[in-house]
Write a protein that binds this DNA or RNA. Structure first.
Lengths: 336, 336
DNA sequence: CAAAATTTTGGGAGCGTTCCCAGCGCGATA
DNA sequence: TATCGCGCTGGGAACGCTCCCAAAATTTTG
């Protein structure tokens, strides 16, 4: 019933706790035979280290916090994969918290993670201008932060992993234009995210360049859900704004939009082409498959994890910003 | 830079650590004014409790482990929501681990969680016959387990939350039959899951009842991914097995199947109806929207969390098995 | 006003690890 | 033989917190 402790092992083997501990920690100052015996006994008695005690003593917990807006979409899950890929083998654990796009909840989660003694936090924030005091507080306490995908709006002493939103948004728009589309609507994300603004900027520049801009074509989604995408298109149609293509902030929005269009009997891509940004598996699961800019999510996680390890090793190492290449995947929703 | 501890607070306020601790823990044996002062100072100095130390002393960690095959699909995410809904307000944290449908990884995760001192583990297993020794070991150590959705094949002293697979599988099949379908194919899940078998049984019974059974119509998916669904249908078509409906083990499989059919120019639902089990948001995101048996996932999580709390309070309380009602959502993929 | 009851505070052990410091045995060197 | 170095082991403090026990301060009772 009770947990087996180092002390129990020591008593059982007639050794001191120090020696047992040394064996368990793979210390070199121990006879190989003793070590073998200890490991053997540990296995037999089912010893499991009490990481609370270890982390108390050691000062570090080997826990990394992961703070994301949501885990319902595969986006964060993929990033998490990458993170675990790197951190798992090194004995780190990842504690995941969702904030449901609510800055207040994000705040709570961050504080919880601090209490939890995490060695660092990898975060995709939900509002670029909120919670800066907490970020700073964590940094002041020596807890490194690594941001991915979405960035805080002013300069914090943190490392970052991101893709060039402007660049790829331009590319998507350019692609739609190249297919002969002129009335390209943009379902924009919340303005509290730089990503939204940057993607909108990329879109706008290309539209301007071709002289086909029209403010009426830009519609701001109320949120980031499937329904929000639906509603956005619905609004466009109700306002009788003509369009022959849609570029959506995320694939979830795009898919919502597509769904509404198909319900209305609109043909995709013949009548309306659709494309999005930050595509995930979802893009390939819908029909027609959705064209999208796909950031290398797993790699994003890996890089974030590596940056974190750097920071854990030495908190004062210079911050780095890693810009990843994304891929514009052209699928049936925009090619005909 | 350094963390503020109880001792620091005590020194600062000229009080004893006991008193400070009492204030922080909302103990009744303390003057309200002192308490106020302590809380005030704690806030000012930015005190955060060291949960490692607390859990070491207290013996409990207020951590619950969550072990699932994957988090890429919204299935587990929804359940997690329910769990957090209940546990969050009570000061519990949830540690999430994915095993990627790999029993070995599940094993590692379980052991990791034990080391982590979790007060209990809520689990959706990935192979009903593996890892029983670990389950038992955890139970022996007084760590309660609560299973949801997928169950271990023999009797462990655990609580469970599930839906009636047989019943609802029958219902789906019956629904397809009622639409005049006679060649209903079943994309079955891995036989290492009772769910697969039960759903297949439900399907089979209805098919038998109507005298339209044909073993050729049952195809076992290689895995549980989108591609596996595609491949299953591909195989069926390559084998020239005629079918006018598909009942798939999960929505991911169904969506893969739909995708392949649509690619082949098959009309859904006119030529082939599609329906699935354990549907999530995904079912409504595809076009045509997918008919599916939808278990109340959030509620499933809530019930699991409640069962867990019961067990944490008293490990020896009788185990309970909660059977939830699901809902057969008929959508366009099977109605015309 | 003393004694008892009650409220409020302080001292300090102990949770399970890790790790520094010291000690032991033993062979090599002087 | 005395000294040193080396490999290994044991003792015990410390991490930050909680909680038992006892002491002090305060109020109530006879």
């Amino acid at each position: 019933m009770k947990r087996v402790t180092v002390k129990d092992l020591a008593k059982h083997l007639l050794l001191s706790t120090s020696t047992v501990s040394r064996a368990l920690l793979n210390d070199k100052n121990i006879h190989w035979e003793t070590k073998k015996k200890v490991l053997q006994a540990a296995k037999e008695l089912g010893y499991r280290r009490n990481s609370a005690a270890a982390s108390l003593k050691y000062g570090r917990s080997k826990n990394i916090g992961f703070v994301v807006p949501e885990m319902v979409t595969p986006f964060s899950s993929k990033v998490l994969r990458g993170i675990q890929e790197i951190l798992y083998p090194l004995g780190y654990r990842v504690i995941i918290t969702e904030c449901d796009e609510d800055p207040l909840r994000e705040r709570e989660n961050l504080l919880l993670l601090e209490e939890f003694n995490v060695d660092g936090i990898i975060i995709n924030l939900c509002d670029e201008s909120k919670n800066h005091d907490v970020y700073q507080q964590l940094l002041d306490r020596g807890i490194p932060l690594v941001f991915f995908d979405r960035m805080p709006n002013d300069s914090l002493n943190v490392s970052k992993v991101l893709v060039d939103n402007f660049l790829y948004a331009s590319a998507v728009t350019e692609h739609l234009v190249s297919k002969g589309r002129k009335r390209i609507a943009h379902i924009m994300g919340p303005p509290s995210l730089r990503n939204s603004q940057d993607r909108a900027k990329g879109y706008k520049e290309v539209m301007d360049k071709h002289g086909i801009s029209d403010p009426a074509l830009i519609i701001e989604a109320k949120g980031l859900g499937f329904e929000d995408g639906k509603n956005a298109v619905k609004t466009l149609m109700e306002k009788q704004i003509e369009f022959d293509a849609i570029f959506a902030f995320t694939d979830t929005l795009a898919i919502g939009a597509m769904n509404y269009l198909l319900e209305q009997g609109v043909k995709i891509p013949q009548e309306v082409s659709v494309a999005s940004f930050s595509g995930t598996e979802l893009s390939t699961m819908v029909y027609p498959q959705l064209s999208s800019v796909e950031p290398p999510l797993v790699q994003m996680g890996e890089e974030a994890a590596r940056l974190m390890l750097e920071k854990i090793k030495n908190f004062d190492v210079a911050c780095r910003e890693i810009l990843l290449d994304a891929e514009l995947k052209i699928r049936s929703s925009s090619s005909f």
